[in-house]
Protein backbone atom coordinates (compact mmCIF):
# COMPACT_ATOMS: atom_id res chain seq x y z
CA UNK A 1 0.00 0.00 0.00
CA UNK A 2 1.24 3.48 -0.88
CA UNK A 3 2.40 5.42 2.18
CA UNK A 4 1.16 8.91 2.84
CA UNK A 5 3.77 11.52 3.74
CA UNK A 6 3.29 14.10 6.54
CA UNK A 7 3.14 16.87 3.95
CA UNK A 8 0.49 14.99 1.94
CA UNK A 9 -1.56 14.54 5.11
CA UNK A 10 -1.55 18.31 5.60
CA UNK A 11 -2.57 19.02 2.02
CA UNK A 12 -5.20 16.27 1.81
CA UNK A 13 -6.82 17.03 5.17
CA UNK A 14 -7.09 20.71 4.24
CA UNK A 15 -8.62 19.70 0.88
CA UNK A 16 -11.11 17.33 2.52
CA UNK A 17 -12.06 20.04 5.00
CA UNK A 18 -12.65 22.50 2.16
CA UNK A 19 -14.89 20.18 0.17
CA UNK A 20 -16.81 18.56 3.04
CA UNK A 21 -16.21 20.31 6.36
CA UNK A 22 -14.97 17.00 7.74
CA UNK A 23 -12.11 17.70 10.10
CA UNK A 24 -9.66 14.79 10.10
CA UNK A 25 -7.18 14.31 12.91
CA UNK A 26 -3.80 14.55 11.20
CA UNK A 27 -2.26 12.05 13.61
CA UNK A 28 -4.58 9.30 12.35
CA UNK A 29 -2.42 8.23 9.43
CA UNK A 30 -4.24 4.87 9.20
CA UNK A 31 -7.51 6.70 8.54
CA UNK A 32 -6.09 8.32 5.43
CA UNK A 33 -4.43 5.14 4.21
CA UNK A 34 -7.29 2.71 4.85
CA UNK A 35 -9.95 4.99 3.41
CA UNK A 36 -8.15 6.62 0.52
CA UNK A 37 -5.65 3.81 -0.26
CA UNK A 38 -8.15 1.67 -2.20
CA UNK A 39 -9.22 4.73 -4.25
CA UNK A 40 -5.58 5.47 -5.04
CA UNK A 41 -5.10 1.93 -6.30
CA UNK A 42 -8.32 1.87 -8.28
CA UNK A 43 -7.54 5.13 -10.04
CA UNK A 44 -3.96 4.04 -10.68
CA UNK A 45 -2.28 6.98 -8.90
CA UNK A 46 1.20 6.53 -7.54
CA UNK A 47 0.94 9.00 -4.67
CA UNK A 48 -1.54 10.92 -2.53
CA UNK A 49 -0.21 14.15 -4.06
CA UNK A 50 -1.27 12.88 -7.48
CA UNK A 51 -4.75 12.08 -6.14
CA UNK A 52 -5.00 15.61 -4.75
CA UNK A 53 -3.79 17.27 -7.95
CA UNK A 54 -6.08 15.21 -10.20
CA UNK A 55 -9.04 15.90 -7.91
CA UNK A 56 -8.35 19.64 -7.94
CA UNK A 57 -8.01 19.66 -11.73
CA UNK A 58 -11.17 17.62 -12.41
CA UNK A 59 -13.88 20.04 -13.56
CA UNK A 60 -16.58 17.33 -13.41
CA UNK A 61 -15.73 16.81 -9.71
CA UNK A 62 -16.01 13.05 -10.18
CA UNK A 63 -12.88 12.43 -8.15
CA UNK A 64 -14.04 14.82 -5.43
CA UNK A 65 -17.25 12.77 -5.12
CA UNK A 66 -15.23 9.57 -4.84
CA UNK A 67 -13.01 11.09 -2.14
CA UNK A 68 -16.05 12.19 -0.12
CA UNK A 69 -17.62 8.73 -0.49
CA UNK A 70 -14.38 7.13 0.70
CA UNK A 71 -13.70 9.42 3.63
CA UNK A 72 -17.19 9.87 5.09
CA UNK A 73 -18.20 7.52 7.88
CA UNK A 74 -21.36 5.64 7.09
CA UNK A 75 -21.73 3.89 10.42
CA UNK A 76 -25.48 3.61 10.81
CA UNK A 77 -28.12 1.07 11.66
CA UNK A 78 -31.84 0.75 11.93
CA UNK A 79 -33.14 2.27 15.18
CA UNK A 80 -29.60 3.28 16.27
CA UNK A 81 -30.04 4.07 20.01
CA UNK A 82 -33.63 3.39 20.91
CA UNK A 83 -33.96 6.68 22.85
CA UNK A 84 -34.56 9.11 19.97
CA UNK A 85 -37.23 6.87 18.44
CA UNK A 86 -39.00 6.58 21.80
CA UNK A 87 -38.91 10.38 22.07
CA UNK A 88 -40.33 10.63 18.56
CA UNK A 89 -43.10 8.10 19.22
CA UNK A 90 -44.19 9.12 22.72
CA UNK A 91 -43.43 12.81 22.92
CA UNK A 92 -42.49 14.86 19.89
CA UNK A 93 -44.92 13.64 17.24
CA UNK A 94 -47.95 13.46 19.61
CA UNK A 95 -47.16 17.01 20.88
CA UNK A 96 -46.91 18.42 17.36
CA UNK A 97 -50.10 16.70 16.24
CA UNK A 98 -52.00 17.95 19.31
CA UNK A 99 -50.83 21.51 18.75
CA UNK A 100 -51.50 21.50 15.01
CA UNK A 101 -54.88 19.75 15.11
CA UNK A 102 -56.10 22.28 17.68
CA UNK A 103 -54.91 25.13 15.48
CA UNK A 104 -56.58 23.94 12.29
CA UNK A 105 -59.46 22.17 14.05
CA UNK A 106 -59.07 19.13 11.83
CA UNK A 107 -60.01 20.91 8.62
CA UNK A 108 -56.73 20.28 6.84
CA UNK A 109 -54.47 17.25 7.04
CA UNK A 110 -51.88 17.90 9.75
CA UNK A 111 -48.56 18.57 8.12
CA UNK A 112 -45.29 17.28 9.60
CA UNK A 113 -41.91 17.78 7.96
CA UNK A 114 -38.96 15.78 9.22
CA UNK A 115 -35.35 16.08 8.12
CA UNK A 116 -32.55 13.59 8.63
CA UNK A 117 -29.59 15.89 8.03
CA UNK A 118 -26.95 13.18 7.59
CA UNK A 119 -29.03 10.23 6.52
CA UNK A 120 -26.14 8.06 5.34
CA UNK A 121 -27.58 4.95 3.68
CA UNK A 122 -31.15 5.65 4.83
CA UNK A 123 -31.53 3.51 7.95
CA UNK A 124 -32.42 6.49 10.15
CA UNK A 125 -35.08 7.91 7.89
CA UNK A 126 -36.71 4.52 7.29
CA UNK A 127 -36.69 3.90 11.05
CA UNK A 128 -38.49 7.25 11.48
CA UNK A 129 -40.96 6.30 8.73
CA UNK A 130 -41.68 2.96 10.44
CA UNK A 131 -42.32 4.70 13.78
CA UNK A 132 -44.76 7.12 12.10
CA UNK A 133 -46.51 4.32 10.21
CA UNK A 134 -47.05 2.44 13.46
CA UNK A 135 -48.01 5.50 15.46
CA UNK A 136 -50.46 6.95 12.92
CA UNK A 137 -52.60 4.20 11.44
CA UNK A 138 -54.68 6.65 9.44
CA UNK A 139 -51.90 8.26 7.43
CA UNK A 140 -54.35 10.06 5.13
CA UNK A 141 -55.16 12.48 7.94
CA UNK A 142 -51.58 13.69 7.86
CA UNK A 143 -49.35 15.28 5.31
CA UNK A 144 -46.01 13.77 6.25
CA UNK A 145 -42.82 14.61 4.41
CA UNK A 146 -39.49 13.04 5.25
CA UNK A 147 -36.27 14.34 3.75
CA UNK A 148 -32.91 12.59 3.99
CA UNK A 149 -29.71 14.35 2.97
CA UNK A 150 -26.09 13.29 3.01
CA UNK A 151 -22.81 14.53 1.60
CA UNK A 152 -21.97 11.17 0.04
CA UNK A 153 -23.48 10.46 -3.38
CA UNK A 154 -23.04 6.73 -2.88
CA UNK A 155 -24.85 6.84 0.47
CA UNK A 156 -27.74 8.88 -0.95
CA UNK A 157 -28.05 6.49 -3.89
CA UNK A 158 -28.27 3.46 -1.59
CA UNK A 159 -30.74 5.24 0.69
CA UNK A 160 -32.86 6.03 -2.33
CA UNK A 161 -32.86 2.43 -3.57
CA UNK A 162 -33.68 1.27 -0.04
CA UNK A 163 -31.75 -1.95 -0.54
CA UNK A 164 -29.73 -3.61 2.23
CA UNK A 165 -27.59 -6.71 2.52
CA UNK A 166 -27.98 -9.16 5.37
CA UNK A 167 -25.30 -7.53 7.52
CA UNK A 168 -26.92 -4.12 7.24
CA UNK A 169 -30.42 -5.41 7.78
CA UNK A 170 -29.66 -7.57 10.81
CA UNK A 171 -28.37 -4.58 12.77
CA UNK A 172 -31.02 -3.04 14.95
CA UNK A 173 -34.06 -4.32 13.11
CA UNK A 174 -36.42 -6.69 14.93
CA UNK A 175 -37.60 -9.70 12.94
CA UNK A 176 -41.27 -8.65 12.93
CA UNK A 177 -40.38 -5.24 11.47
CA UNK A 178 -38.11 -6.86 8.91
CA UNK A 179 -40.90 -9.15 7.67
CA UNK A 180 -43.45 -6.37 7.72
CA UNK A 181 -41.57 -3.56 6.03
CA UNK A 182 -39.02 -5.25 3.79
CA UNK A 183 -39.17 -7.80 1.00
CA UNK A 184 -36.37 -10.24 0.24
CA UNK A 185 -35.10 -10.57 -3.28
CA UNK A 186 -32.11 -12.90 -3.59
CA UNK A 187 -29.66 -11.76 -0.93
CA UNK A 188 -31.04 -8.24 -0.74
CA UNK A 189 -33.74 -6.80 1.47
CA UNK A 190 -35.69 -3.94 -0.07
CA UNK A 191 -37.83 -1.44 1.81
CA UNK A 192 -41.50 -1.77 0.83
CA UNK A 193 -42.98 0.92 -1.42
CA UNK A 194 -45.40 2.24 1.22
CA UNK A 195 -42.43 3.22 3.45
CA UNK A 196 -40.14 4.24 0.59
CA UNK A 197 -42.80 6.61 -0.74
CA UNK A 198 -42.81 8.57 2.52
CA UNK A 199 -39.21 9.76 2.05
CA UNK A 200 -37.19 11.70 -0.46
CA UNK A 201 -33.43 12.03 -0.61
CA UNK A 202 -30.89 14.46 -1.92
CA UNK A 203 -27.20 15.24 -1.67
CA UNK A 204 -26.31 18.09 0.66
CA UNK A 205 -23.13 19.50 2.13
CA UNK A 206 -24.05 20.82 5.60
CA UNK A 207 -21.24 23.38 5.37
CA UNK A 208 -23.12 25.22 2.62
CA UNK A 209 -26.29 27.32 3.06
CA UNK A 210 -29.44 25.18 3.26
CA UNK A 211 -32.22 27.63 4.15
CA UNK A 212 -33.83 26.78 0.79
CA UNK A 213 -34.90 23.42 2.22
CA UNK A 214 -37.73 25.26 4.00
CA UNK A 215 -39.03 24.85 7.54
CA UNK A 216 -38.97 21.60 9.50
CA UNK A 217 -40.85 20.38 12.54
CA UNK A 218 -38.34 17.73 13.52
CA UNK A 219 -34.65 17.57 12.65
CA UNK A 220 -32.40 14.59 13.26
CA UNK A 221 -28.75 15.64 13.15
CA UNK A 222 -27.00 12.79 14.88
CA UNK A 223 -23.31 11.92 14.95
CA UNK A 224 -22.30 14.19 12.10
CA UNK A 225 -21.21 17.40 13.83
CA UNK A 226 -18.66 15.30 15.73
CA UNK A 227 -16.59 15.31 12.53
CA UNK A 228 -16.63 19.12 12.37
CA UNK A 229 -14.52 21.64 14.27
CA UNK A 230 -16.12 23.83 16.95
CA UNK A 231 -16.65 26.88 14.70
CA UNK A 232 -18.40 24.80 12.05
CA UNK A 233 -20.57 23.06 14.67
CA UNK A 234 -21.75 26.47 15.88
CA UNK A 235 -22.58 27.57 12.33
CA UNK A 236 -24.37 24.30 11.57
CA UNK A 237 -26.66 24.34 14.62
CA UNK A 238 -27.41 28.03 14.11
CA UNK A 239 -28.55 27.30 10.57
CA UNK A 240 -30.67 24.41 11.88
CA UNK A 241 -32.21 26.76 14.47
CA UNK A 242 -33.13 29.09 11.59
CA UNK A 243 -35.20 26.47 9.81
CA UNK A 244 -36.80 24.77 12.80
CA UNK A 245 -40.46 25.57 13.49
CA UNK A 246 -40.93 27.46 16.81
CA UNK A 247 -42.49 24.38 18.42
CA UNK A 248 -40.25 21.97 16.51
CA UNK A 249 -37.54 19.80 17.93
CA UNK A 250 -33.97 18.78 17.22
CA UNK A 251 -32.47 15.43 18.07
CA UNK A 252 -28.67 15.08 18.18
CA UNK A 253 -26.49 12.02 18.80
CA UNK A 254 -26.69 10.43 22.24
CA UNK A 255 -23.20 11.59 23.23
CA UNK A 256 -23.46 15.07 21.67
CA UNK A 257 -24.49 18.28 23.41
CA UNK A 258 -25.24 21.83 22.35
CA UNK A 259 -23.90 23.52 25.51
CA UNK A 260 -21.52 26.22 24.42
CA UNK A 261 -22.39 25.49 20.79
CA UNK A 262 -25.83 26.99 20.23
CA UNK A 263 -27.47 28.90 23.07
CA UNK A 264 -30.68 29.26 21.04
CA UNK A 265 -31.59 25.68 21.96
CA UNK A 266 -32.58 24.35 25.34
CA UNK A 267 -32.44 20.68 26.27
CA UNK A 268 -35.61 18.87 27.32
CA UNK A 269 -35.61 15.50 28.96
CA UNK A 270 -38.02 12.74 28.09
CA UNK A 271 -37.54 9.37 29.78
CA UNK A 272 -33.84 8.59 29.36
CA UNK A 273 -33.24 10.82 26.35
CA UNK A 274 -32.76 14.47 25.52
CA UNK A 275 -34.18 16.50 22.68
CA UNK A 276 -33.78 20.21 21.98
CA UNK A 277 -36.28 22.98 21.41
CA UNK A 278 -35.79 26.63 20.61
CA UNK A 279 -35.83 28.89 23.65
CA UNK A 280 -39.06 30.87 23.83
Amino acid sequence: MTKITPNEIKIISKYIYDISGIYLDQTKIYLFETRLGPLLEKEGFSSYSELYQKARADPGKKLEIKIIDAISTNETLFFRDTGPFEVLRHKVVPDIIDARSAKFSGLLPTSIRIWSAACSTGQEIYSIAIVLKELLPDMKKYNIKLLGTDISDAAVAQASYGKYNKFEIERGLAKDKLQKYFSLSGNTWKIKDEIRAMASFRKLNLMLPFAALGKFDIVFCRNVAIYFNMEDRKKLFNKIADLLAPDGCLIVGSTETLSGICPRFEPKRHMRSIFYQLKK
Partner: peptide, 27 residues
Protein backbone atom coordinates in the same frame (compact mmCIF):
# COMPACT_ATOMS: atom_id res chain seq x y z
CA UNK B 1 -16.67 -4.82 19.33
CA UNK B 2 -20.06 -3.37 18.48
CA UNK B 3 -21.46 -4.59 21.79
CA UNK B 4 -18.53 -3.06 23.70
CA UNK B 5 -18.99 0.18 21.78
CA UNK B 6 -22.73 0.22 22.47
CA UNK B 7 -22.21 -0.27 26.21
CA UNK B 8 -19.54 2.44 26.34
CA UNK B 9 -21.62 4.81 24.25
CA UNK B 10 -24.72 4.19 26.34
CA UNK B 11 -22.85 4.95 29.58
CA UNK B 12 -21.18 8.01 28.12
CA UNK B 13 -24.53 9.22 26.78
CA UNK B 14 -26.15 9.06 30.23
CA UNK B 15 -23.30 11.00 31.84
CA UNK B 16 -23.22 13.59 29.07
CA UNK B 17 -26.99 14.04 29.08
CA UNK B 18 -27.07 14.46 32.88
CA UNK B 19 -24.35 17.10 32.58
CA UNK B 20 -26.23 18.80 29.74
CA UNK B 21 -29.35 19.11 31.90
CA UNK B 22 -27.30 20.46 34.85
CA UNK B 23 -25.56 23.00 32.64
CA UNK B 24 -28.88 24.13 31.24
CA UNK B 25 -30.36 24.51 34.72
CA UNK B 26 -27.33 26.45 35.97
CA UNK B 27 -27.43 28.71 32.90
Amino acid sequence: LREAMDVTECNAAQTIQDLEMSVSELN
